[in-house]
Deep mutational scan, measured.
Amino acid sequence: DEIHIHFNGVTIEFRGLTEEAKKALEEAIKRGASEEELKELARRLIK
């Protein structure tokens, strides 16, 4: 299970995320999180 985020022309790929983690990332994107914020969020979620 993986998710691809297209962000300002950059694709960020995450693997092994739970549904909750995906929802958290989607919410962050909707509120306009920066690419760095998304990566940091993903790091926290994957652990």
Rank of each mutant, 00 (worst) to 15 (best):
L41E: 01
A42N: 01
I46L: 13
A28T: 02
A28Y: 05
E2K: 14
G16C: 10
R43W: 14
I12D: 05
K23W: 11
E27K: 07
R44K: 13
A42F: 15
T18E: 06
A33Y: 10
A24H: 08
F14E: 01
T11K: 07
E20I: 06
I3W: 15
L17S: 02
E13T: 14
D1R: 05
V10Y: 07
K30W: 12
E37H: 02
R44G: 04
R43A: 14
G9H: 04
I3L: 11
G32H: 03
G32A: 01
E26A: 07
E19H: 13
S34C: 04
L38F: 06
I5G: 04
A42H: 12
L38E: 00
K47S: 15
A28Q: 02
G9T: 03
K30A: 12
I12N: 03
E36W: 08
L41G: 00
I5D: 03
E19L: 11
L41N: 00
A28W: 05
E26L: 13
K30R: 12
E35W: 15
K23T: 12
E2G: 10
E27R: 09
L17D: 01
I12G: 05
R15E: 13
K30V: 12
R43I: 14
H4P: 02
R31D: 14
E26T: 11
K39V: 15
K39D: 05
E40W: 03
I29S: 06
H4N: 06
I3N: 06
R44H: 13
E13L: 12
A42W: 15
A33V: 13
S34Q: 04
G32R: 00
L17T: 01
G16K: 08
I29C: 04
E2C: 08
D1C: 13
K39F: 15
I5C: 08
S34D: 08
I5E: 03
A24L: 15
K22W: 09
A28C: 05
T18W: 08
G16E: 10
E27N: 07
L25G: 00
G32P: 02
L17Q: 03
K22Y: 10
R44N: 13
N8R: 03
K47I: 15
I5N: 02
L41A: 01
L38W: 05
E2V: 15
F7T: 04
E35N: 06
E37P: 00
E19Y: 11
E20D: 09
H4W: 09
K47V: 15
T11D: 11
A24K: 09
I46K: 06
I3C: 05
E40S: 06
H4T: 08
G9R: 01
E35A: 14
E27C: 07
I5M: 07
E20Q: 07
A24C: 11
D1I: 14
A42V: 15
N8D: 12
N8F: 06
E40K: 02
L17I: 09
